[in-house]
Nucleic acid binder design. Sequence first.
DNA 1: ACGTAATTTGACCGGGTGGTCAAATTAAAC
DNA 2: GTTTAATTTGACCACCCGGTCAAATTACGT
Lengths: 204, 204
Amino acid sequence: MKPFEKLPIEKQARIVNASISEFAERDYETASMNKVVERAGIAKGSLFNYFKTKSSLYFHIYHLALGEVKAYLRKVRDETADLPFDVRLAKIVDSGVQFITEHPRLARIYFRLIYSDDSPNRKKIVDELQSMSDEYLGGIIQDAMDRNELDAQLDKSQSVFFLDAVLTRFLKDYHEALELGDQDRFDREQWVIGITKLFSKGLS
Amino acid sequence: MKPFEKLPIEKQARIVNASISEFAERDYETASMNKVVERAGIAKGSLFNYFKTKSSLYFHIYHLALGEVKAYLRKVRDETADLPFDVRLAKIVDSGVQFITEHPRLARIYFRLIYSDDSPNRKKIVDELQSMSDEYLGGIIQDAMDRNELDAQLDKSQSVFFLDAVLTRFLKDYHEALELGDQDRFDREQWVIGITKLFSKGLS
DNA sequence: ACGTAATTTGACCGGGTGGTCAAATTAAAC
DNA sequence: GTTTAATTTGACCACCCGGTCAAATTACGT
């Protein structure tokens, strides 16, 4: 049993919480183990006893974040399995907005990972996320094609790309606005309508 | 006259080149003035004589990059002013690909600036880039609406957002593939067709 | 050729980094 | 209660950072 897991839950939580804050506020290289220790109220030696290196602590936090994201995605996919494409799309956007609202720090870590390049093992992780997204959005597009809601001749991987590009960018901007307390400029409904319309009918 | 401008062009070029490489390879916080000095083959004191601070050197480089980007964008806009929407879109993509191919390091600095948050004055710069993009893509969409190539009832700012999201994401992925020597997996023509089709007809 | 001003240099500064480890503290075993 | 094992601690290490500045070098006016 790893030393960290033997700790009382309350202490584990304090450390995880401190780490999330630190990795959310600064990028990987700039995030400081000294500051984590300070935030968590433990000694430096202890932290390095629980996690041998900075990058192993980062992975612990990253996997927590990824687990949360996956849970959200799975939930919305399963709950909407029988609904039409546009409704599913809307629910996915809603789910993303909800995740960001409830876990802004995890969202920050997630976006940082995707968009920056200083996280350790970045390429491996991004590939992993990419194939996750391919499978997830690909499945939803396939469902829609099977139901003749989308053109059966579609280039599926390209469609996934477009969907991913628009959804991710929307959520990133929403998240950024949230951090500035400016999220009111996003009329959620208006955006959901716009996004579904773009993918169903284009701009013409 | 600023000291840096008095330098022989060759020396200026060496310093600029070293700085571009350093800021392309590492993000702002991690980029090292010591390494710039080393790459450029000058003494540390000299560099700080030319640029009082790290951030002022960064701005010098950033403005160079931005100037190049703007020149490319202006060129393609003016050259395609009379062409239909889909052709313009294709040319813009081409131009972006060309820029990335010819200036991969500047492209890296540009993407880093957009997607990371440790550059000094990041918010101001991103706002500036945002309104540049709004004006640029907004103009192109407006032209297309005036010619009845796009729906006159379109929410323009939303359409700009979608266009920007897809184009930027495509170019970012292309750039990343280029750095891995993997750009052959992008069939440029296939992507240009896919993108224009998405925006003209959607996925159905 | 000389004196002065401008430029260049790199040792040096305070501060922060990830990581270590002997010593102190706490928990467990008997 | 005593001994042993596990955990916690923070001073300490080597290294790197952005930035400074007195001294050395170069350039220039006369």
